[in-house]
Design a protein around this nucleic acid. Structure first.
Lengths: 135, 135
DNA sequence: CATAGGGCCTCCAGCAACTGGAAGGTCAAG
DNA sequence: CTTGACCTTCCAGTTGCTGGAGGCCCTATG
């Protein structure tokens, strides 16, 4: 199986697959002409990584998950811990974004959005720290 | 005012301030010994950028906002448009993260988290695409 | 006056996680 | 035989900094 087949089936770009080889996720065999020759196990791993990445796991998380995946004697608790850590990070990011959203939408509501140069958004961005530091 | 004062007052690390000079946000004067010599207007701009960055505006957004900020004849509508575009991106990110959160917390709930090797999290990561591509 | 400690300078490298492009080998079809 | 689609490697760029090396500069203390 060559790289474009694997790209199609895994949903990952060929570039990304080569990158994943570079960082040691897979080690496909080579044909005499130098082309990579993938087997199902590599496709399987790539699909696994792609799905984990889409769930927000970092590359290092994926490395850990792959090891756990390959280790048939691992405890499910180990995997759960990685997943829970990831879940917490997702929750933190959501909280941050919601705070940004609240502030920004408040500013936008206050802005007339017309042709006058007066703008509460810029005023707020400029003044908040100014009053704190330049008083 | 030297760089560490500005770092303290703006809340930005000195490294970041030098970086912001590199990319053209500020152009502080230099003392005869080569040290940067900041005036209030630069501190003001840095604080502005810092606050915009913390609200999720990209560097390029900040460049646009700074131009609008410096242009006293601009219409507040221009600023509002940048802010609204940014708000939409924040909303999209929140939606993505919520979807990840739902999937991941579902998987975590199903995982026993004990010493048995059986783990629905890994099963799901491994099988979803497998069934699609290797059937 | 020498020295120790900070602070400041520039430049180079690296983080994540790819992505794009150049330069070139390979292969199958017409 | 040529065309065009593959494949290869390697290098550079992306975003927004951050760390470190190597080296001035400035002040304070003995």
């Amino acid at each position: 199986m060559n790289i474009s087949d694997v790209a199609d089936k895994s949903g990952l770009p060929a570039k990304t697959i080569r990158y994943y080889e570079d960082i040691g996720f897979i080690k496909p065999k080579r044909l005499p002409n130098g082309y990579r020759d993938f087997e199902n196990v590599e496709l399987h791993k790539l699909a696994f990584i792609g799905r984990a990445r889409s769930l927000g796991f970092s590359i290092e998380d994926c490395r850990t998950l792959l090891e756990l995946y390959n280790d048939t004697s691992r405890a499910s608790a180990d995997v759960k811990q990685v997943a829970q850590h990831n879940l917490k990070e997702i929750e933190d990011k959501i909280a941050d974004l919601k705070a940004m959203h609240a502030t920004l939408s408040h500013l936008i509501d206050e802005c007339a959005g017309d042709h006058r140069p007066d703008c509460p958004i810029l005023d707020s961005l400029g003044n908040t720290v100014l009053t704190k530091s330049l008083s």
